[in-house]
Structure formats: structure tokens, C-alpha cells
Design a binder for these strands. Structure first.
Length: 439
RNA sequence: GCGGCCAUAGCUCAGUUGGUUAGAGCACUAGAUUGUGAUUCUAGGGGUCGCGGGUUCGAAUCCCGUUGGCCGCCCCA
């Protein structure tokens, strides 16, 4: 039987699965629109070099990449960030600021599948370009929260952990680490939650034994869970940069609290996010039970547009994947039921009545009603059964008796009531039913 | 790239120490029911038992390989 299988890690969406996916996308799109973001789209296939420039040569092992017939090295997109940076960079001078854009798109990574991870997946990506201040972070974190809360998820279900690579940088510099060591230390911090003390192994291998005093301070810093603790930790360290940064923190947390989102956001310096292109605030969303992998991640990346060869452009963005998010909805029983797609089912007596029904069926469809009917003659009982299963609210009955009288019988499937209307008033009667919601 | 478990109908699964033509429920199609709905009854379609090889008189069953799936490690933009 199974002569051809789908490729490993790729998904097929049968209608009920696609209905669930569409429901998620619909709410995400609606939320993005209410936050004033504009939707864009871009190619699935990109030059391989775009990703190597951003992430380094090693990235190729994780990509679906090949040489096309023109000899070009290409790759299926594994993420949207480099692409959207190019879009913005190309037209930076003509775009109104702030640039608030989002997309819902499919991505491909050549990886081993796991729970919540496949070789293809969808992501909502939202980014703000051109705004260096925390006002941009405010918008994006608020929108991220609403993208979840819109489904009925609450602060009991998920939360956003907020951290700051800038502050980490300032702090580690103050401890006497140079830039290379700071980056090594940040990658240790990133892994500390999972590995514990072993997270420092790479650092020690690369830079030699770690001073116990420094290590103790790093461990204390990554356990910071509040603005007050943060202020205490840096209070002894001089410098305007640090003072200004603390002001940013107060403003951002104040903004989010003013939006009523305080319960969703937690200061957490254990988060720094792996790859190095983030330059400021970083954040990740997790389920409260801690059972799933990260639901969303984002942060500020002010230097990436410039790195790709365009003018400098401040930027903040986040991405939410569909797979882990769908798992969370399922866990909390918030997966929507399949929505029936029929408004009206037309019951047809036989071939003679079919011709009469066809005219009205087409007219009703043209008027925007979702109308279905049996393609071939069926017993009446069977047709009513199909009508009920279709989820239709109304059945229109085109039988020999009705047509002889010049009427159509309308049956309200919910309460099984019936009445007859003259044939030329069918459209009006149907419109009344659906606009009034009654009768 | 590494490790553990698994693979029988569209789905969930039975299938005895290796033994005749591989089963059930659900789902699907049709009939009972030629003008009125979720029940019931009956019938039907659908499987080269993931694929390939080996052992055997005989393999869904035992052995090897392979592909795929789930879970974990690495990674996670």
C-alpha cells in the first residue's frame, strides 16, 4: 500500500486538522491587526548565503539546502528574521516609522523530530523596526501575551520571562571580563538551567579556571527574579550606562503593568537566549507547568540589518511556533471543535425537482450563503440525516408536492419546525432567518 | 550525529508454544426505509501484517538489515 510516504518530519493537514490550524492563524492575524501591525510575505526559497551571513557556516547542517539548476546555492527558509531585515533594509528610506510588521509563514529545518518540533512548522513573526526605545518592546510583549490570551489562556497557563543581554554585558564587564569572555559566559548562563555546574565546562576549557568570586557573582545574578533584586545587585557598580539601563527597565515594566500585563511577565536573568545577535532585552514564553519547550522567543537585534549590508536599523521581534502552541491549547482543552461549513442543505425530490432547485442554489451561493445538496438522488430520510450531520441550520425542500403548489418548504433543523414560502420569496426568507437569528 | 521503545484495515487494537482463507470495534458505502433526522438490524468495500532478506515443510509470529514513528540527548535561529 504505502508506496509513497510523506517525507520525515513533514505534516499533512486533513480538513479537520487544517480547521484547527486556520483557527489559530485567524486569531493571531486578528490580534496583530488590532495592535497595528501590517502583514507581509516573502519567498520560501532564499540564497544560502543569507543564513550563513547571519548565523555562520555551521547553520548549513540544519538547513534544507541545495544547488538549483542555475547553479545557485539556495535554502528553504528556516526563519523569517533575515528575510524581513532584507525587506526593510531595501526600502528603509521610504518606510514610515515605526515599521510594525508581521507574517504567518512556514519554515523548514533539517532536524530530528521531537515533541513540539518537526522539520516544517509555522511561525507568527512580529517585528518593530526603527524604534530604539523600550516602547517597541512594550508593544511586542503585549502583543505576544494577547496572541495567547486571545485563546482563553491565562497567567495560570503561561508567562513571559524577561531578561537583558545589555545588562548582562555591563555586569560581566564590571567583573573584569573582556568581550570574548563575556560571550562565553553568556552561553554558559544560557545552559545553566539545564546543565547546572556543567554549563561552565566549555568556558573553563576555553579560558582556563574560573575565579570562584566571579562565578559566585554570576550565579547570584542569573537568579535575579525582580527589579528590586536587580537594582540591589548593580547598586555598587558605577557608570551612566547602567543607570540609563535601569531606567529602561523601570519604564518597560511600568508600561506592561499599566496595560494590566504584570501577571504575565517575570524578570528572569536566567534567560539570555543562545545565539549572539540579540543586543538588548530578550524574552521567552513558557507554559507554567514547565512541561513543554519554549512557546515563543524574541528580543532586540539592533545590529542585524546593518550586518546584512544595509543602513543601521534598530529592531525588536519575536516568533511563535504553531506546534508547541497547539500542544498547549490541547493540554488546556482549548482546541476549538471543528466548525461545520454549511448554512443550508437543499433536499431534492428527484431529477425533475433538481432543475428547479439548481437556480435557487446558485443564487443563494452567490448571495454568500454556504449551500450544499446531494449530488445524486437520495431517499428523503437519508437527505435529512445528511442535512443534520452537515451542521446546516436550514433545509430547503424541493419536492414534487411543493413545486406543484409553487412553494418551497423551509425546515429549521434546530427545532424541526417547517413552513412554506412561495418560490420567488425563498431568498428573502433565508436572509430573514439568518439576519434575525430567530424563527 | 547518539540512545531507548515501537510498526497488523482510514483510526484504536486482538491475533495462543510458528500451523488452514488474518479478526473486532469505530469510521466509510449500500439496503431495510419511493416525503422527514443522531436509534436498530443486515450486507459490502477496504490488509501483499512498513519494506527487503534469512531460518523453516510452513512466518504477522523467530533472526538480520532497512525505512518510518514516538520519546530522550546534542542543537534549537
Amino acid at each position: 500500500m504505502a508506496q509513497f510516504q510523506s517525507l520525515p518530519g513533514f505534516r499533512e493537514f486533513y480538513p479537520d486538522a487544517l480547521a484547527r490550524r486556520n483557527h489559530i492563524f485567524r486569531l493571531w492575524r486578528q490580534t496583530a491587526n488590532t495592535f497595528g501591525f501590517q502583514e507581509y510575505d516573502a519567498p520560501v526559497l532564499e540564497p544560502l548565503e543569507l543564513y550563513k551571513t547571519k548565523s555562520g557556516d555551521e547553520i548549513e547542517a540544519q538547513l534544507f539546502s541545495f544547488t538549483d539548476k542555475g547553479g545557485r546555492e539556495v535554502a528553504l527558509r528556516p526563519e523569517m528574521t533575515p528575510t524581513v531585515c532584507r525587506l526593510v533594509g531595501e526600502k528603509a528610506n521610504s518606510l514610515k516609522r515605526p515599521i510594525k510588521w508581521f507574517s504567518i509563514a512556514e519554515f523548514y529545518r533539517y532536524e530530528r523530530m521531537q515533541k513540539g518540533r518537526g522539520r516544517c512548522f509555522f511561525q507568527l513573526n512580529a517585528d518593530i523596526f526603527g524604534e530604539p526605545g523600550v516602547e517597541a518592546e512594550t508593544e511586542l510583549i503585549a502583543m505576544l501575551v494577547q496572541c495567547f490570551a486571545g485563546f482563553g489562556l491565562t497567567a495560570e497557563d503561561f508567562y513571559v520571562r524577561l531578561s537583558d543581554r545589555n545588562l548582562w554585558f555591563y555586569y560581566l564587564e564590571a567583573l573584569g571580563l573582556d568581550e570574548v569572555r563575556v560571550r562565553g559566559m553568556l552561553s554558559a548562563v544560557d545552559r545553566f538551567e539545564k546543565l547546572g555546574d556543567d554549563a561552565f565546562k566549555d568556558y573553563v576549557t576555553q579560558f582556563g579556571a574560573l575565579d570562584e568570586g566571579v562565578k559566585a557573582k554570576v550565579l547570584a545574578f542569573l537568579q535575579i527574579k525582580s527589579l528590586a533584586a536587580l537594582e540591589t545587585a548593580v547598586s555598587g557598580i558605577p557608570g551612566d550606562k547602567l543607570t540609563a539601563r535601569l531606567a529602561d527597565w523601570r519604564k518597560l515594566l511600568g508600561n506592561l503593568a499599566a496595560m494590566g500585563l504584570g501577571g504575565f511577565v517575570e524578570v528572569d536573568f536566567g534567560v539570555v537566549r543562545g545565539l549572539a545577535y540579540y543586543t538588548g532585552f530578550v524574552f521567552e514564553a513558557f507554559d507554567r507547568k514547565g512541561e513543554l519547550r519554549a512557546l515563543a522567543g524574541g528580543g532586540r537585534y539592533d545590529s542585524l540589518v546593518g550586518k546584512l549590508g544595509y543602513g543601521e536599523m534598530p529592531a525588536v521581534g519575536f516568533g511563535v511556533g504553531d506546534m508547541t502552541f497547539a500542544l498547549l491549547l490541547e493540554q488546556r482543552g482549548l482546541t476549538p471543535a471543528f466548525v461545520p461549513t454549511t448554512d443550508i442543505y437543499v433536499v431534492i425530490g428527484g431529477e425533475a425537482e433538481r432543475a428547479a432547485a439548481f437556480g435557487d442554489i446558485f443564487a443563494l451561493r452567490a448571495a454568500g450563503f454556504r449551500v450544499d445538496y446531494p449530488l445524486k438522488d437520495l431517499a428523503f430520510g437519508k437527505q435529512f440525516k445528511v442535512a443534520a450531520e452537515s451542521g446546516a441550520k436550514l433545509a430547503l425542500i424541493y419536492g414534487g408536492d411543493e413545486l406543484a403548489k409553487g412553494v418551497v418548504k423551509i425546515r429549521v433543523l434546530g427545532d424541526r419546525s417547517e413552513h412554506e414560502v412561495p418560490r420567488d420569496q425563498v431568498a428573502a426568507a433565508v436572509r430573514d432567518f439568518f439576519s434575525g437569528g430567530a424563527e
